[in-house]
Design a protein around this nucleic acid. Structure first.
Lengths: 120, 120
DNA sequence: CGGGATCCCATATGATACTG
DNA sequence: CAGTATCATATGGGATCCCG
């Protein structure tokens, strides 16, 4: 259950309410790349370039934007190794590994049921 | 596991590939309202106006757009009762109830962990 | 290598008014 | 009631070039 009880409607802790902070989280994931990025990082930490080649089709700008947002929410950790050439690694935080689980379930469901879905 | 094996990279059945049809499904859900709509319909069928008041903040235009997309993918069923006044009901299809499960898991995770997330 | 800076477009989202 | 029409805007997304 998402709501604890019926009286939660349109309260702060009801995700169906406009005031619920959970909507921000849902909206963070609700873009073209967040879910895929978290999925990739769940397997193992990735460097910027590795992510870009793994997530076919993402531009460096959008990849940066999305990573920053995930950092802001505390889902992703960015570590800089001051080497030459520069080395930056992105990894999931504890909380990041937390969301990764339901997101993996979603991706998995999609893969398993893809043949039953009418993808025009 | 999302990929069956490592050799799946950048193939049609690898969701990380740009050619994977699963991306369309992921992208369908990746918008501001789809997840909430499916969540609401999971509880019970809703009329248009019921949905609109339940999902605080959605405009009729956007609600229609999203519902149409969900219909196209076969997740939602639209039934018209030719009464006066007009009566239209939206309900989940079998496949719609399928996605609803992982989506509910995601919403639930968000609610449970909301206090641990840094929502600026 | 890992981006930041720019410019630009497509689309998602919205507010409001109107109709079958 | 259940939308559609219209207009307006925000943001996502992308291409390219450049720099430490």
């Amino acid at each position: 259950m998402v709501r604890a009880c019926a009286t939660d409607r349109h309260e702060k802790h009801d995700i169906y309410s406009a005031q619920c902070p959970g909507r921000d989280v849902l909206y963070l994931l609700a873009n073209k790349w967040s879910t895929l990025i978290i999925g990739a990082l769940e397997e193992q930490p990735h460097r910027f370039g590795e992510l870009q080649s793994r997530l076919q089709g993402v531009s460096p700008k959008v990849l940066t934007q999305t990573l920053r947002k995930l950092e802001d929410f505390g889902f992703v950790d960015r570590t800089i190794y001051p080497e030459v050439p520069l080395h930056v690694e992105y990894a999931l935080t504890d909380i990041g590994r937390g969301v990764a689980t339901p997101l993996a379930a979603l991706r998995n469901w999609i893969e398993v049921n893809l043949d039953k879905i009418h993808t025009t």
